[in-house]
Design a protein around this nucleic acid. Sequence first.
DNA 1: TATTGTTATACTCTATAACTATA
DNA 2: TATAGTTATAGAGTATAACAATA
Lengths: 168, 168
Amino acid sequence: MAVVTEGASAGSPPALGTRVSFLLSQLGLQSARTFAAGLAPLGLNPNRFGLLIHVARAEGQSQQQLAETLGIHRNAMVSLIDDLEARGLVERRRHPRDRRAYAIHLTERARELLPEASRVADEQEASLLADLAEDERQTLRDLLSRLSAGSGQRADVHPGYREPASTE
Amino acid sequence: MAVVTEGASAGSPPALGTRVSFLLSQLGLQSARTFAAGLAPLGLNPNRFGLLIHVARAEGQSQQQLAETLGIHRNAMVSLIDDLEARGLVERRRHPRDRRAYAIHLTERARELLPEASRVADEQEASLLADLAEDERQTLRDLLSRLSAGSGQRADVHPGYREPASTE
DNA sequence: TATTGTTATACTCTATAACTATA
DNA sequence: TATAGTTATAGAGTATAACAATA
């Protein structure tokens, strides 16, 4: 699916391509797809990576806790953890104080994989910003951070997107 | 679905939230969802709006031509045009020189709707940039435009995203 | 023989409700 | 009575192949 957006009214006015919101959406989706492509050789995707990061921050959380942090339903967390477990990246251990719940822990393999995934992100960041001077990069980072903070986004929590289906 | 992304390796290093690529993806998805919510009262969504814009640019194009411009398969264009036709926004007319093809035209209703949709986009743009000074807005627009141009994006063509399902 | 539009199919992702076992 | 995790279901979106009409 692709969408064109530009030239406002039938008359022809302001091109959407000059709007910050359009550029953010366009570049954001491309960044996500590029990241997905870069993670693929590691057997990861942005969703798996993001969840692993959150497991790593505090091991032993329940699925319910992880779901609340990510802003999704606990039902959806089941298959996400199923997926990571099947790939040998997390373990479901008995929760020490609640026999209904699991305590989710990283495996050794996940601990090896996370730095590699971060390196992929760093390389793509450098490639994305290759045409900008250092002061321009810092300015861009600053402006985007302010937009993010001002728009009520939880820092470091991505609102979520599907895995891009096709190649790229 | 939601995804968290931050703190790189298990050690804790560079937060993904400080990366431009993460901020673009986060803000871009939020912009798209906000735009979808704003268009909903008009019976539009970003996909429909984008396609209408492209029909408006050159009326009488075939479905195949529109599909090529948007970078999607002609099969997918069928249901998009079905959808717009059912809403009374486009008409399938006989193509003057090829009896296999349709010539896609806007209806009067679509001509009324397009300026309203552009107004929604303008209002949201203003809201998004409310915290920035005028020179900062221009700087941001310029930097994002350069990233977009440098990354091989076709100007004014969005790489596509699904209609956000939930409320947002 | 190629092209335009169409349909059918399978696959994925999502959202909801309902179930079990514990608390 | 509420909560953690699970399963089943239905819906939306996408991708592919195959078809009829026309070039």
